[in-house]
């Protein structure tokens, strides 16, 4: 029974991670459209850069976080590794964006970044639904 439950919840965690990435991409897309309407194409590209840097970081972090183990300490170390990789990727991508893109609109970038970062938690709703189904 426990094994069945573990394997089912493993599949569900995959769904939750993909749902999280979907939410982040959707939030980024909304901010990009608003920036395009309000401030033009450079603001839209800036918002896209901000949102995508968080989404790419979260994608690689989710690959590391999906490694399952029976020991709580191993799971925790994997999760902390995933978070460290996520932060490093985001910082590197933001640094490259600020250095390379000369027509950057900083406030649009921050808006895209904030939307993508905050909407990652929206996947919690998916987590609750799958648990109720089980």
């Amino acid at each position: 029974m426990t094994e069945e439950r573990n394997s089912t919840s493993g599949l569900d965690s995959n769904k939750v991670f993909s749902k999280m990435l979907q939410w982040q991409l959707s939030a980024t897309l909304v901010v990009v459209i608003i920036a395009l309407i309000v401030s033009g194409s450079h603001a839209a590209i800036s918002a896209l850069a901000g949102g995508l840097s968080v989404t790419v970081g979260a994608y690689f972090a989710s690959k590391i976080a999906q490694r399952s183990s029976k020991e709580a300490a191993t799971v925790l170390v994997n999760l902390l590794k995933a978070e460290a990789v996520k932060i490093v990727i985001i910082v590197v991508l933001l640094f490259i964006t600020f250095k390379v893109y000369k027509q950057l609109v900083p406030f649009a970038l921050i808006a895209g970044l904030a939307a993508a970062a905050l909407f990652s938690g929206a996947a919690m709703s998916k987590l609750d639904k799958t648990e109720l189904e089980i």
């Binding site: 439950r5 991670f17 995933a82 932060i87 904030a114 905050l118 919690m124």
Partner: peptide
Amino acid sequence: IPQLQGKVFLLLGLIDASFIIGVGL
């Protein structure tokens, strides 16, 4: 543990969101 793993990862992202926004600023 497997059920808590997903929740902990999502909440780690939420806790770090303020820090990431701060880094961007």
